[in-house]
Design a protein around this nucleic acid. Sequence first.
DNA 1: CCCTGTGAATATTTTCACAGCT
DNA 2: AGCTGTGAAAATATTCACAGGG
Lengths: 207, 207
Amino acid sequence: MSTINRNTIHRIIMYNRILKEAQRNKIDFITSKEISDILIKNPAQIRKDLSYINIKGKPGVGYNVISLVSKLDSLLGLNKMWNVMLIGAGNLGGALFFYHGFKREGFEFKAVIDNDSGKIGKKWNGIVISSVKNIKNKIRDNKISIAIIAIPRDAAQKIVDKLIDAGIREILSFAPEPLNVPAGVNVRYVDLALELENLSCHLSYKK
Amino acid sequence: MSTINRNTIHRIIMYNRILKEAQRNKIDFITSKEISDILIKNPAQIRKDLSYINIKGKPGVGYNVISLVSKLDSLLGLNKMWNVMLIGAGNLGGALFFYHGFKREGFEFKAVIDNDSGKIGKKWNGIVISSVKNIKNKIRDNKISIAIIAIPRDAAQKIVDKLIDAGIREILSFAPEPLNVPAGVNVRYVDLALELENLSCHLSYKK
DNA sequence: CCCTGTGAATATTTTCACAGCT
DNA sequence: AGCTGTGAAAATATTCACAGGG
């Protein structure tokens, strides 16, 4: 077992999905080759990734699907529910809030924050949209461990400071600016403009 | 000038944003060190990235901001408008459609497709939501070059086949399954569940 | 003197290839 | 025979370090 690779978690999430599909199809064992064929990867990579996290297969047979799913679920934290706070009840926030996929994976919105007085007090699926000044209470009362920032620009950093002060350590941000956070706080970014710019870059190349 | 790096485009998009900020602040020249301080990167990386695309700075001074922005805009295809088709007029599709940031960067929605008869015929900002069977015509008539797939699961691959048949080569997909596309077609994925799973993985680790 | 441009060195990630278990 | 587990090799990516230009 050597050191864990920066991209390994990303791939393990993909393996986990493939394995759940296999489980639905009542497949007992799966080989690294079968996984790699789906992902168009090198099978040695899959074996190495799994060895990083101390998972053993059966030589000549492959990996036991049920056991592997359960180990990966536990590694990825998918065997419990996580309470999520949404910051920003705009179009994007609404799309995230009402997207059904999250709850199935173990992520449940328990609080919604917005600074628009026209929205504060309204309810989404029974959850009252609250003002920014309630962040700390809401996080405590709802045992929030993940915050999603879906505010377009400007105020992101100020909100993040409040979140961190209230004990949040995991943030998913849709704001394009890099956020300043202390060590131990994990931020992931979804940058929609960046994705489109990647595409237009390709288009420009060709001309 | 050596070969271009897989991550270079991603970084160049970030440089471009920093440079535009500098331009707004009327800064004439910027050094690799100044850029790297903002991104917390190695300055040699910035110089190397820029050299990959044949950009020259002035020794002792840095890079001319205006000239650099213009070169990067042109490389990234941000100096023209691109017509975009949205597939899926649900919550997420709506959030993307009504997000103002895209048009500013040169991406304009010109067609919206959905298969829900309750939505077909309705207008969003003057654009009529059309049935899937109009995809090919809409792409031709509106000179669409980028498609955004915002349908939750299932039908993504079928739609992609139609898009490719109609000449689309650049796709941004919010559907979590890997899409099967021929060489020359560029697909980027935004996988929201994957981002959350990354966060919950961190949370699990610690326990 | 300060910063660029870039070969060379280092670090990281992926792939190969094969011994060993079932 | 077939597939795992893993050192070793190869490929990629990043950083160093310094010659040379303004």
